[in-house]
Structures are given as structure tokens and as C-alpha cells.
Amino acid sequence: MSTSWPLWEVFVRGKRGLNHVHVGSLHAPDAEMALRNARDVYTRRNEGVSIWVVPAASITASSPDEKDPFFAPSGDKVYRHPTFYAIPEDVPHL
């Protein structure tokens, strides 16, 4: 049998109120060991209050090659931004 452990991506919540952020990856035989290893590798100095581990193989990512067409729908919709609308300067709180 193959002895190489699967790769896990690690996400850490730095403190309450923040999102989990990707910090790196590691190898572990199962989810529980991945969590323990993530604690030892990525949070030796109180860098986190919560950890997620996700099998790297389970992540679906957008392809960088199709970057332009994929994100194009948001490119031509300037009316989604507040600065699109001209409001007289003397109108307060807008």
C-alpha cells in the first residue's frame, strides 16, 4: 500500500470576528491527525483560535488561464459601485 499521506490545506481563524484564512498545507493520514499537525505547525504562537483542514483534492478552483473571461461579468457593471451615482455635495449622509 502507498504510505504517503494525503495533502490537507489548512485555514486558521486568527481571532474571534475574523474569517478563517489559508495558511499552508501539510500531510496527515486522517482529518484528526491533520488538525493536530496543523496546530503544531501553524499555531505555535497563539496564531489561531480555530482551525479548518480540508483535503487538498476536495478543493475546486477557478483556472487562472480563463481569468479574464471568468471574471468579465463584473468588469462592465460600474453601476454596482456607489461612486457611479452623482449626488450633490450638500446632501448629507449619502
Binding site: T3, W5, D30
Partner: peptide, 16 residues
């Protein structure tokens, strides 16, 4: 460490 890696992988497979 080879036996540890093998044992952990076997345990994980069994648990799954």
C-alpha cells in the same frame, strides 16, 4: 519512522 507512517495510514483506512 516508516512503520509509524504505515500504521497511521492503515488505521486511517480502517476508520474510513
Amino acid at each position: 519512522g516508516a512503520w509509524v507512517r504505515e500504521a497511521a495510514a492503515a488505521h486511517a483506512a480502517k476508520q474510513a
